[in-house]
């Protein structure tokens, strides 16, 4: 049954992915005007531009160009960046680990802080902790990430000086294995780099986590309230079970299901939020790279990164749906 559900979901992805490719194709091939001119760069002679036009198939009708493009992408060829003169795939591999490390840490932070906060808020309903956490969630979802980042940078780096500021690491990065500094420094036993990288992660990951944290708190609170009001919880209470046990065993378990959805949906938000976070903290990640590509009209790179981000986003949402199906017995596939 589950396998069937997954297969159906995967099948439904095919038209979506084709559409995603079409959009990235439109963005990178049509909108910026003469792509051949862009690829050729300054001072290219008309002959060179003509040669590039042929080489890249830009002289062919659009649907043929799209077919060529599809073929390239399916072979894993994302083209060559105009700005860095390297294959876009290589650039993405170089910049992705930084973004992955940042968004994953932020997500962990949001989940690990958000769920307890939500539970506390629900248990102490309409008392001080609840009021505080509700005010926090209102501010959290309204906060411009870039401004929060600046505030934290100002406070903890400039004024108090207790946390490191811009950048991923101060000294030499650990030997490259995965590109994830925490992981790599653990593997190589480079404790200096581990501490350094971990501290550098604190401000950016908290900045990025803030809005999602607020959302998770809010969702956990309301689903906890709902769960705690259910009959079986009341029964459990009536049976004289310890309050904390009731909350955890019966309330939280059921409250987690809607929270899970929020987590999945929030991943896209984290990828978007990473843009401002990486800019503020000089974080050498993929979204930082793509902003640079966008401002220098490096459309092969823009297309590649947008495509990769969309695929990540789709995959995460698919995983959430599947988990959801696994966790919630009420779902019928």
């Amino acid at each position: 049954m589950l396998a069937f559900f997954i297969a159906r979901r995967l099948l439904l992805l095919v038209p979506t992915l084709l559409g995603v490719l079409l959009i990235t194709f439109l963005i990178s091939h049509i909108v910026p005007g003469d792509a051949a001119q862009l690829i050729a760069g300054p001072r290219a002679t008309p002959e060179i531009i003509q040669r590039i036009r042929q080489e890249y198939g830009l002289d062919k009708p659009l649907h043929i160009q799209f077919a060529i493009y599809l073929g390239q992408v399916l072979r894993g060829d994302l083209g060559k960046s105009i700005r860095t003169r390297r294959p876009v795939g290589a650039d993405i591999r170089a910049f992705f680990p930084a973004t992955f490390e940042l968004t994953t840490t932020a997500m962990l932070l949001a989940v690990l802080l958000g769920i307890p906060l939500g539970v506390i808020s629900a248990v102490y309903r309409d008392r001080l902790p609840d009021h505080l956490s509700r005010v926090f969630s209102v501010i959290g979802v309204s906060m411009p990430i870039f401004w929060l980042g600046l505030l934290l940078l100002f406070l903890f780096y400039i004024r108090l000086g207790i946390l490191p500021g811009p950048g991923r690491i101060s000294g030499d990065p650990p030997a490259h294995i995965t590109g994830l500094y925490l992981f790599d420094s653990l593997l190589t036993g480079n404790w200096r780099a581990l501490g350094d990288a971990a501290l550098h992660l604190v401000l950016p990951s908290f900045t990025l986590a803030f809005a999602v944290l607020a959302r998770i708190t809010r969702m956990t609170r309301s689903s906890m309230l709902e769960a705690l009001a259910q009959d079986y919880v009341r029964t459990a209470r009536a049976k004289g079970l310890h309050e904390r046990w009731v909350v955890v065993r019966h309330g939280l378990r059921n409250a987690l299901i809607p929270t899970l959805t929020v987590i999945g949906l929030s991943y896209g938000e984290l990828l978007g939020g990473a843009v401002a976070t990486e800019l503020i903290f000089a974080w050498p990640g993929m979204t930082h790279y793509v902003v640079g590509s966008m401002t220098s009209l490096d459309f092969p790179a823009v297309m590649g990164v947008t495509l990769v981000i969309a695929i990540i986003y789709i995959t995460v949402n698919l995983l959430v749906d599947i988990t959801y199906a696994l966790v919630d017995p009420r779902i019928r596939y």
Partner: peptide
């Protein structure tokens, strides 16, 4: 906590500079 962080930073700084 901030004291600890400071120490970590100082040690780190000594190590790389």
């Amino acid at each position: 906590l901030s004291g600890v962080l400071c120490w970590v930073l100082v040690l780190g700084a000594m190590a790389w500079a």
